[in-house]
C-alpha cells in the first residue's frame, strides 16, 4: 500500500468515477437499454401528446364509428381504413391514436405519482424503524403487517366506491397502499447502515439523528429504493388499468388504457384490435418498467448478479 504524502507525486490519475462506471454498465445491459428505450418513448409521447395527436381525443363522430386501423387496408383490403385514423376509431368514432397518446399520460402520471407517494411514506417509516429500532420498530412493523393483510384491490375498490372516483382519489388510494415494499427494504438496509462506522463518526462530529438519516443513510439507500420505485410504478399502472376496467378507476371520457379495454370488451370478437391496441401498449409499458427496474438493480449493484439479459 502506498500512502502519498506531501512529498509524493501529484494526485494519481483518477480511476473511472463511479458515475462513469455505472453508465458504462448501463450501456452494456440489454434489458436495461430496452426498458429505458421503450419507457423514454412512452414518456415523450405522453408529454408531447397535444402536439402529436392528429385529432381531438374527445371528438365523437357517429358516422365514423369503429373504423379499423390502417393495416386492415393493407392486409384485409378493408375499404374503411384510412390514413386519417392510423389506429382507427372507437365505438363513438373518436380517433384511437389520439386517445392512446393521451392515455399514456394517465398511465404514466398514475404510475409515477403513486410510486412517489409510496416511496416517501415507505422510506420514511423504514428508516425510522431501522434507525431507532425498539418501540419505533415495533410500531412500524405492525403497520407493515397490517398493510400486508389488507387486500389491495378490494380496499381500493371500496374507497373509490365510497368516495367517488377521480384521478386524484385513485392516486392517493394507491399511493397510500403500495408503500409496504419500500418500508421493508429500507428498514433492513437502514439497520445495517446504522451500525456503519461512518454513522458513528458522524455522531461523533455532532450530527443530529435527522441529519444522519438524511445525509448519511438515505443516499446509501438510493439504489434499493429506486429499484422498488420502478417495480411499484408498474404495479400501480396495472392496478389502475384493472380498476378502470372495472369502472371504478379513471372515469370516461378520460382516455385511460384500462378504460379503453373496458369499453372495447363488447367488440372483442368482431373488432379485436379495439382491445388489442391498449392491451399491447399496457403490456409494453409494464414490461419496459420491469426491465428497467431489473436492469437498474443489476447495474447499480452488479456483484453476484448475472441475469440472462445482462
Amino acid at each position: 500500500m502506498n500512502d502519498a504524502t506531501a512529498t509524493a507525486a501529484p494526485a494519481p490519475a483518477a480511476p473511472e468515477s463511479p458515475t462513469a462506471a455505472t453508465l458504462h454498465r448501463m450501456r452494456r445491459h440489454k434489458g436495461f437499454m430496452i426498458g429505458a428505450g421503450i419507457l423514454a418513448v412512452m414518456v415523450l409521447v405522453g408529454l408531447l401528446a397535444p402536439l402529436l395527436a392528429p385529432h381531438d381525443p374527445y371528438l365523437q363522430s357517429l358516422a365514423k364509428r369503429r373504423i379499423p386501423p390502417i393495416w386492415h387496408a393493407w392486409f384485409y383490403g378493408s375499404p374503411r381504413a384510412t390514413t386519417l385514423h392510423l389506429l382507427g376509431t372507437d365505438q363513438l368514432g373518436r380517433d384511437y391514436l389520439s386517445r392512446m397518446l393521451y392515455g399514456a399520460r394517465i398511465s404514466l402520471a398514475i404510475g409515477l405519482s403513486t410510486a412517489l407517494i409510496s416511496a416517501v411514506i415507505g422510506t420514511a417509516l423504514g428508516m425510522l424503524a431501522g434507525y431507532f429500532r425498539g418501540h419505533v420498530d415495533a410500531v412500524v412493523s405492525f403497520l407493515i403487517s397490517a398493510r400486508l393483510c389488507v387486500p389491495l384491490i378490494l380496499v381500493a375498490l371500496t374507497v373509490v366506491a365510497l368516495v367517488g372516483s377521480s384521478l386524484m382519489t385513485l392516486i392517493l388510494v394507491l399511493g397510500l397502499l403500495l408503500w409496504d415494499r419500500f418500508a421493508v427494504i429500507t428498514r433492513t438496509a437502514t439497520m445495517q447502515l446504522a451500525n456503519a462506522d461512518f454513522v458513528l463518526a458522524s455522531r461523533a462530529a455532532g450530527s443530529s439523528w435527522l441529519r444522519i438519516l438524511a445525509s448519511e443513510i438515505f443516499p446509501n439507500l438510493a439504489n434499493a429504493w429506486i429499484v422498488v420505485l420502478t417495480l411499484e410504478m408498474a404495479n400501480a399502472i396495472v392496478i389502475e388499468a384493472a380498476l378502470s376496467f372495472l369502472g371504478l378507476g379513471v372515469q370516461a371520457p378520460l382516455p385511460s388504457w384500462g378504460l379503453m379495454l373496458a369499453e372495447g370488451r363488447n367488440d372483442m370478437f368482431f373488432n379485436p384490435w379495439i382491445i388489442a391496441i391498449p392491451g399491447a401498449a399496457l403490456f409494453a409499458l409494464v414490461l419496459a418498467i420491469n426491465l428497467l427496474g431489473d436492469g437498474l438493480r443489476d447495474v447499480t449493484a452488479p456483484e453476484g448478479r448475472g441475469g440472462a439479459l445482462a
Binding site: 456503519a196 462506522d197 461512518f198 458513528l200 463518526a201 458522524s202 455522531r203 461523533a204 462530529a205 455532532g206 450530527s207 445525509s215 448519511e216 443516499p219 446509501n220 438510493a222
Partner: peptide, 21 residues
C-alpha cells in the same frame, strides 16, 4: 460539544467515511 470541543477518530479508516459523499 461533539466534533466541536471534543472530537474522535476511529480504528477503521476504510469504513469511517461515507462512500457516497
Amino acid at each position: 460539544i461533539r466534533g466541536n470541543r471534543m472530537a474522535m477518530i476511529f480504528q477503521e479508516p476504510m469504513t469511517s467515511l461515507n462512500p457516497v459523499h
